[in-house]
Amino acid sequence: MSVSEDVILKVRDLNAYYGAAHILHGINLELSRGEAAVLIGRNGAGKSTTLKSIMGLVRPAAGEVIFEGDKINGLAPYQIARMGLGYVPEDRRVFATLTVSENLEVGRHERPGMKAEWTPDRLFELFPNLAEMRERTANQMSGGEQQMLAISRTLMGNPSVLLLDEPSEGLAPVIVESMAMALRTLVDTGLSILLCEQNLAFAAAICTRAYVIETGQIRHEGTMNELLDRADLRKAYLAV
C-alpha cells in the first residue's frame, strides 16, 4: 500500500440505504493529499451512492466520513462543499437555462483564509472550448462541453478534493482523451481526486490507486498498475 501519512479524506464502514434497499455494505477507503484514486466497478455497484454519502446528499445509516481530520457526516451538503469538497455529479446536472458564466457564478466560493485559485479565465485556459461560449446557455451545449462546465463550476468553489462521478460517461473517445488530460493537469497542480468510473483506460490515465467496488462492498484495493496487470481481478469485477 502506498498510502502516505497525509490522509485528506477517509471513509469508514459506510452503510447506506435507498428506502429499504441496502446499497452500501460497509465501505472503507482513504485518499491522500494530492493523490488521484479511482473507485471502479460496474454500474449498480454503489459508486454514485458512495460519493453522494460523502457529500451529505444521501444520509448514511452508519459509518464515518472524515475530511481534513474532521468528521463531516451529518453536515448539510453546502457546509461540506464549503469545507473544500467539490462534487461533480453523474449526468453533469448543469443548470440548463443558465449561461456558462452564470453556471460558474453559482459555484463561486472563496474559502476563508485561502487565496481564490480559480477564476473563469483560468478555467477557460484549462478548457479552451468553454471560453468561446461564455454567454451560451448550458442546454445548447454538447455533452462533452457540459461535462467541462460541470467540472469548472465545481472548481469555482476552490476545493481541495474533487469527487467526480463518471465524467467519461456517454462522451466521444476524443473528448474522453482531452478530459483525461485536463484532469491529469489538475492532479499535477496538487488537487486530490476521487474518481468513480467504469472506464478502466480512462481511470488508468488519471489515477495511481484503485478501489474495486462490487455490490456495495470494496472487493480489492491496490495500485492502478496492479489492477492493470491482474486479468483475474478485471474479469471478476469489471468485465462481463
Binding site: M55, Y78, Y87, P89, E102
Partner: peptide, 21 residues
C-alpha cells in the same frame, strides 16, 4: 438572482455547490 434561477432548476445541486439553502 442567478442563485434563485439555479435553485429553481435543481435545488439539490446548488446545495452541493455550497449554497446555503
Amino acid at each position: 438572482g442567478v442563485l434563485v434561477r439555479a435553485a429553481t432548476e435543481d435545488r439539490e445541486m446548488t446545495d452541493a455547490l455550497g449554497i446555503n439553502q
